[in-house]
Structure formats: C-alpha cells, structure tokens
Amino acid sequence: MTTIDMHTHYVPRGWPHLQQSAGGGDDWPWLRIESEREATVMIRSQEFRRVQSQCWDADARLADMDADGVDIQAVSPTPVFFSYARPADQALKVARIFNDLALEICAPAPHRFLPFCQVPLQDTDAACAELDRCLAAGHVGVEIGNHVGDRDLDDEGIIAFLQHCAHVGAPVFVHPWDMPSAPRLDRWMAQWLTGMPAETHLSILSLILSGAFDRLPEALQLCFAHGGGSFPFWLGRMDNAWHQRPDVVGTSQRPPSHYVNRFCVDTVVFDERALRLLVETMGAERVMLGSDYPYPLGERPVGNLVRKATFLNEDERRLILGGNAARLLNLQTAVMET
C-alpha cells in the first residue's frame, strides 16, 4: 500500500530580500535564522511562525516520512507567501522565487516529494502563465488560497484560472488563509480554530451556490484542506436552505449535496468521529490523507487516525491512505505496481 500525504508545507532556509527583488514596502516576510535546525518567519519585527529544519531539509523530511510510513508527500507553499493583496507584478516575482526554491527542496528525492506551486491569483493571465511555467519545470499541481480579498472562488477571474487548471490537468489544493482579525478572534488561536474551518466552508459553498460547479469542467481536480472545514457537518442545513428559500439561496442547478462528488478533502480532522462523518458525507473515494506536516497543529504520526479508524474496511483505508491521491496526482500506475 502506497501512502501519500496530500497536505504538507515547506519554508526555504532563506530567500532573496523581497523588497529588493519585488518592490513594495518593507512588510515582506523574512527568515530569522536561529540555528542549523531552527528559524522564525518574521513580518517586520513580529514573529509569524517558528519553523524547524523539516521545512527545508529533505533528509529530515524523509526520516519523518519513513518513521510514519509515508511514501510520498505533496509539498505545498506556506500561504503567508501568496502575496495576493499586492500588485500582481510583485506577487508574480515572489511566486517565481518560491516556486524555484521548492524545486530545490524537493530535488533530492523527486519520486517522494511532489512540489505544488503558487501563483499570483489576483491576475488570471499571470497565474495561468506561472502555472504553465511551473508544470514544465517539474511541479505537479498548484496550491491556492481560498480567496483573494473579497473575491471568493466563484469570482470570474478565479473560475477562469480553475478552468485552465482543468485544461492542463493540474490538480488544485485549496488552503484557507488570511482569516479575519477581530478582538474575539485574536486570542486562543481562534483564527485557526474557528476561522480556518469557516473560510474553507464558505469557499466550497461559493462554488456550489454561485453555480460555478455547473460551469466548471468535471475534469477539474480540487482538494480542500482541513477536511473541508465545517462544510460536512452543515450539509443538511445547506440543503434545507436551498429547498426552503430558493429565492435567496444561490443559483445552483441542484442542492449542495449533489456536488460533493466535485471535490475532495483531506483527513486533517484529528478525531475518529469527525473522520466517520467526513467519509459518510463525502464517500471514501473523496477523502485523502493529509497531515499539515511539519507544523505543530499537524498530525503525527502521519496517518495514525486513518490506520486506527475502526469503522473503515481495508478497501476504504487503502483509498484514503493513497489510492485517492494517486488518482488525483495521476500516479495510478506507480501505486498499483507498489
């Protein structure tokens, strides 16, 4: 059984000075190196996230993968680097820097690390061009944030980008980011504990109720992080609203539950009861292993929840641990041979 972790991140051990490379103000992320194994991503003088060598060191990642029984990682950017709020030309320069660094991080084990790129999603043409450049260079897919300012995934420009992803066969990993800040959310990690699930839920709903899924090609391969957020739990409420108030609830041709076969979700839910709901709602063929490695809120050992889940049969377990991701990544042959 090949095990594929669809939700991991990287941070390079340093990058060019972004104000000099891309322009703009002095609030670009930078890395404060503290030792060979530790560093902190900074925004000006504020700490954003402490990171360790697993973020950039292939050997450290491989050691953890071997310890956890993970064969392949999809390696995605850390969303703080997306730069969607900046002018598109600046975001493109930053995307190119980090996309090229991602290839360097993954190069020591190309059959085990599958890099996903980032794009300047605020500019459709630039995003499509950067995706094409990255696919030619060795990336296998793209990670996008779940919104660009007030533009959600049903925005016409983002829909055009998603249509391009379907055309070129690039899987899309959607990660929540840029959660609202408010006094009630700025304590207890509430932005991460409530904001992230809500952001993901909202963006899935935008694709459904706007009618975007009715227009997007079925060939589009979408995977949403963190188990789809709160979407699976509230699917019944959404269906009820669609039936009871069709005058105000969206323009989709069918109720929300009709569209669960149009996207996948990862397993970053941490509890067997939540995983059971996820599988019962989405179907075992639409759920795939994710960990949020190497960050502290991720799962370790990776895949422990799926391997120990008492309600899964072995066929379902095999699909979730690797088979579904292999299909999304077009790795069926390699997985079957393994």
Rank of each mutant, 00 (worst) to 15 (best):
T2R: 03
T3G: 11
H7K: 11
P12Q: 00
D27P: 03
W28N: 07
P29G: 11
L31I: 11
R32H: 11
M42L: 11
R44I: 15
E47W: 03
F48Q: 07
R49N: 01
A60C: 10
A63H: 05
D64V: 06
D64A: 06
D64S: 02
D66F: 05
D68H: 10
S76R: 02
F82W: 14
A88P: 08
Q90C: 04
E104N: 12
I105H: 01
C106G: 02
L114S: 01
P115E: 05
V119G: 03
T124P: 04
C134P: 02
H139R: 07
G141Y: 09
R151Q: 13
D155N: 10
A160S: 14
H167Q: 15
F173C: 13
H175N: 11
P180D: 14
L185W: 11
W188G: 11
W192E: 12
W192V: 13
L193E: 14
G195K: 13
L202M: 09
I204W: 13
I208L: 00
S210K: 02
G211F: 06
R215A: 00
A219C: 01
A225N: 05
P232F: 00
W234V: 11
V249F: 02
G250V: 00
R254D: 13
Y259F: 02
N261F: 03
D266F: 13
D271Y: 05
R273Y: 04
R286A: 04
L289D: 05
L289Y: 09
L297F: 14
G303D: 09
R327S: 15
L328S: 12
N330R: 15
V335A: 13
